[in-house]
């Protein structure tokens, strides 16, 4: 299974060299236009941050798809576990009062 999340996510010394001599993995996020959120595009192998940025630029912005790039060492990303899905996310499902449709407005009135 996805073993990329290591025990010590802050151990930057693992960057640059993996156990098998491979450059470490960086996740790439690209911003498609000014003001848009950065989205996960994929990953690259690189030895350091500048290297990762350049590789990300060459691999994921060849067609001018990005105006900004973030690179993040894959092993410092902390993710929720699939097993948590219930307790983590279900409680958000039944709170209708968080959504605008919950509130009634007199017919014919434009609220915004």
């Amino acid at each position: 299974m996805a073993a990329s999340v290591k025990d010590s996510p802050n151990d930057i010394s693992s960057n640059g060299k993996d156990t098998d001599g491979q450059w470490s993995l960086w996740e790439v996020f690209t911003q498609p236009g000014k003001g848009a959120p950065h989205e996960h595009a994929g990953s690259v192998h690189a030895t350091d941050a500048e290297h990762a940025l350049q590789n990300a630029r060459d691999v994921y912005a060849r067609r001018g798809e990005a105006v900004s790039i973030w690179v993040v060492p894959a092993d410092v990303i902390v993710a929720s576990a699939p097993g948590d899905a219930g307790p983590f996310f279900d409680p958000g499902n039944d709170k209708a009062y968080r959504h605008p449709q919950f509130y009634k407005v007199p017919r014919g009135v434009r609220v915004f």
Binding site: W23, V44, H45, A46, Q54, N55, D58, V59, R62
Partner: peptide, 11 residues
């Protein structure tokens, strides 16, 4: 020498 660099040189 590595895929990322192949792509960079082609650019």
């Amino acid at each position: 020498p590595i895929l990322e660099e192949d792509i960079a040189l082609a650019n």
